Simulated scan of single mutants.
Amino acid sequence: MARSTRSVDWGFPRWRSYGAEREAVKVRLCDRHGCDQPGDRPAPKSPNSPDRWYFCEEHAGEYNRNWNYFEGLTAEEAAQREADERRDAGGFAESKHNSWAGPGDGSRSRDEMRALDVLELDPDSDFEAVRGAWRKLAKENHPDIRPNDAEAAKRFQAVQTAYEVLRAAEERRQWKPD
């Protein structure tokens, strides 16, 4: 008897499930040296470059933790790039009120992070902790408590400014559009 060379999925109806082709499926491996997992998560090789690395989930997480967008730039160039991108990111600024992410995971601005440093708090501190730290530091450095102390007056001003920045950010997060 002659061997049949006819495929079982000719015509209609299709006799096999979709994706059950006979050809081998090409799987891209993780670009990390020595890793044999599928590399299905793209990551940029450098800023503003179309070239991509393809990592597995574990190595993509490691890559993202170590990514420094401003690497190789001077402080002035980094500030200029940040200002340019803030000016061009109007569409993203409209969705700030959605609060998709929690504090400490990139949802705080650079000014908020500096304010938290002034108040000696962690990046994931809630507003009650901010208020408590502000009251404690304001009492310690108040000009009425420490008269004729220029350093205490500067620290008091810094604490007040930090609290104002964080209060305004908290009010923006609390505001929900109609």
Rank of each mutant, 00 (worst) to 15 (best):
D126L: 06
K176T: 14
Y163V: 01
E21Y: 09
Y63N: 10
F70S: 00
V165Y: 01
E120Y: 02
D117N: 12
A89G: 03
A115C: 03
L73C: 09
E128W: 14
D144R: 02
S4A: 12
R41I: 05
R81E: 01
S17D: 08
P47K: 06
R167L: 15
K139H: 08
D88K: 10
P143S: 09
N68C: 10
E170P: 00
E82G: 02
R167I: 06
P47L: 08
A79E: 09
R52W: 04
E94Q: 07
W53K: 01
A20I: 04
A20T: 13
S49V: 07
N66S: 08
A133I: 04
P13C: 09
F127W: 07
P13I: 13
I145A: 05
R173K: 03
E151T: 09
E140C: 03
T74M: 03
Q37H: 09
E94C: 05
P38A: 11
A129I: 12
P123D: 10
W100P: 02
D9W: 07
P38C: 15
N98A: 12
C30M: 13
E94H: 02
E85N: 15
G91F: 14
S7L: 06
V130I: 13
G11T: 15
D51P: 00
V165A: 00
E62L: 10
K26H: 14
S107E: 15
A2V: 14
F127T: 15
